[in-house]
Design a protein around this nucleic acid. Sequence first.
DNA 1: TCTAATTGTTAGTATTACATACAATATCGA
DNA 2: TCGATATTGTATGTAATACTAACAATTAGA
Lengths: 157, 157
Amino acid sequence: MIRDKFVDAIAPVGHTDEAAIGAINDILGFHIRLAHGACLRHFTETFTDLDLTQKQVSVLWLVDDHPGIAQTDLAQRLRMDRATTMAIINRLQAKHFLRRDRSDKDGRKQALHLQPPGIEMLAKAKRAIGEHEAWVKSRFTDKEVRQLIELLSRIHE
Amino acid sequence: MIRDKFVDAIAPVGHTDEAAIGAINDILGFHIRLAHGACLRHFTETFTDLDLTQKQVSVLWLVDDHPGIAQTDLAQRLRMDRATTMAIINRLQAKHFLRRDRSDKDGRKQALHLQPPGIEMLAKAKRAIGEHEAWVKSRFTDKEVRQLIELLSRIHE
DNA sequence: TCTAATTGTTAGTATTACATACAATATCGA
DNA sequence: TCGATATTGTATGTAATACTAACAATTAGA
């Protein structure tokens, strides 16, 4: 088929059809983006029934791990700004997954706590994360997983 | 400071403040997301003046490498759907970076070609990518870069 | 106390991603 | 050749980040 021939001609791996310096496949950032996209896609499929995004799960998880955490601390932990954090918290609160309590130690802060529906959902989410992680890790040995996490950590720390 | 104490308490690395099985920092997908976010943030800063996104640069690059490429092939190469590709091509066309020509081989396809402003912009973009890549790679040896690309490739291929 | 910083909030914009539907074109089987 | 099917581009609508800028309430510090 014509299309297949064409696709082969621009395939990302295998023989390079040009000697151009700095082919796009040698760009590390390009691979990070594609890998992230693949992960996000599988994550989204896995969480279709639960109707949760990566960010939302991360927030539930962290609020559970650190009851009373403030939005700013959450933002710092997940590398988001305050406005983005607001949007996520608002959605989770609308679903009654968590509640905001004015902190008595610092009147500016909101202390976040999971509510029963949020606790239930997090339990389901953790099981789904297990599936998702198994999918990602299936192509690596345990050693490679540790290696990959270590390398990635250098980028985001 | 109160805040610093709190941040330390939830720091992503270092001592774990709980023996909970499956801490969020052991999740590979979590690190991929954070690393991608850090890359995207630095990329965006680097490209502030050029006013280009990662996707837009990738599209310019691929159209330059493969003149006459069709939108579907582009989408397949970058793991996007047709609608998303449209949005990106529309923006690039509005800036006169590329043009659409109806393919004479297949009347359904649009053959994409860079226009002079796009060629100029891509040259600038490649220089900026060089800076950006240097930033990412600064924390790795050459061997580690190759290793990381190989590991990431297993995820997105 | 007065000033500056922090925190949450709201509003607006941009980009990406997806689903759906539609028209034009191409392909393949009968 | 004809008719069903698939492909491609397109338009439309929705959702979720991510960012900026501004503002009020609160706290911290000089």
